[in-house]
């Protein structure tokens, strides 16, 4: 996983780019990592036996986004924005290096994982580039209004 800061910045920039409510897009950018509740069970040494795995698949994310969107008056727009954010998450995760496996795009029809294997999850340069991108965005905005 890239770190959450990178995911959030990617979601924020995407929200700004499509000129929509960034707050919902940013929440969507972390949505697939609801799966990280797993870490709590790992810490407690409780074997969840893959129970939470579907939360980090497109179908699981769509269902979670659908549930959250029901908490908004404009639920269709909220659902769309949550999915836009989640898409940025999967896009970034897609480039991570692993020895095998990857994102189960077609779960539950297929358990095959897909991955491009390009960037190490320990690579902090991705975060630095994301932070620079957000700084450039603010500078560009400031000077374009001046």
């Amino acid at each position: 996983m890239p770190d959450w800061t990178t995911h959030v910045i990617a979601g924020w920039l995407t929200g700004k780019a499509i000129k929509r409510d960034v707050t919902i897009v940013v929440v969507g950018s972390l949505l697939p990592d609801v799966f990280k509740i797993q870490l709590l069970f790992d810490f407690l040494k409780i074997d969840t036996h893959g129970f939470f795995d579907p939360l980090h698949t497109p179908i699981g994310t769509i269902l979670v986004a659908l549930l959250i969107s029901l908490l908004f008056e404009m639920h269709k727009l909220a659902f769309f924005l949550l999915l836009v954010g989640a898409s940025t998450h999967y896009f970034l995760d897609f480039f991570l290096i692993h020895v095998s496996d990857g994102i189960r795009l077609f779960f539950p029809l297929s358990w095959k994982g897909y991955q491009i294997h390009a960037i190490s999850s320990g690579n902090y340069w991705v975060t630095i580039i994301a932070i620079l991108a957000i700084i450039f965005y603010f500078l560009f905005k400031k000077f374009s209004h001046a």
Partner: peptide, 20 residues
């Protein structure tokens, strides 16, 4: 949505040993 999600999670739990 909750029912489908729980079904998927249960399916993942049951098939975990065979598929992953």
């Amino acid at each position: 949505s909750i029912s489908i999600l729980l079904l998927l999670m249960t399916y993942s739990y049951i098939e975990h040993d065979e598929k992953d």
